[in-house]
Nucleic acid binder design. Structure first.
Lengths: 92, 92
DNA sequence: GATATTTTACTGTTATAACAGTACCAAGGT
DNA sequence: ACCTTGGTACTGTTATAACAGTAAAATATC
């Protein structure tokens, strides 16, 4: 939500990286048009495409919700955990 | 990135909400096919479409990067702030 | 095990995202 | 003034996301 925020973040990070729109586009493996559109606030880009741009700028995405903690717990449980070094309660 | 994570989060939250794929689709204002695709891990959905689904499930998106703090600071500065309750140093 | 509900997996159609190409419009530097 | 560079803003084309519809699995509910 609030895609203008993402647009500004992309522009900010690109500027800090000293990249032009075209350079970022090539780095991310997308067309220059998309970079321009994203910075303009266009929210109709493919999620994959947006991710490529964010990744090129070292920007990560994190989901947050009231239930998120529960969700993460569940993920821990269903993986047998290859980490056998300490056998105990994961100290979150 | 790691769209399977998002897929699982959506499924988890939908389940917790007691919604069917179709109900969520209607709630989010998207087609049932998209909900299925997202939960299957399809990363080619439009960002806007994904956001609608996340929003319906009360899942927020946060960007994170080493530069993010700097970015937020800059946002604070350039907004004149309509909040006049405490007379801060706004006089420039 | 029969019935209902939900999910998965196809379709064909329509709208449109992504793209390269082009051109124009700043700013900055010479 | 000129030239360069980066951004903006259009094009036309192609690939495809989104959609409702349908049907078949899977999963509950009785």
């Amino acid at each position: 939500m609030d895609f203008s925020r993402i647009a500004e973040a992309v522009r900010f990070h690109r500027g800090r990286s000293g990249l032009t729109q075209l350079e970022l586009a090539n780095l991310a493996g997308v067309g220059k048009t998309v970079v321009f559109d994203v910075e303009k606030g266009k929210d109709t880009v493919r999620f994959r495409t947006l991710c490529r741009i964010l990744q090129a700028l070292n920007i990560g995405i994190r989901l947050e919700s009231p239930l998120m903690a529960r969700f993460e717990e569940e993920l821990d449980e269903e993986s047998p955990s290859l980490d056998v070094r300490h056998s105990g309660r994961r100290t979150h």
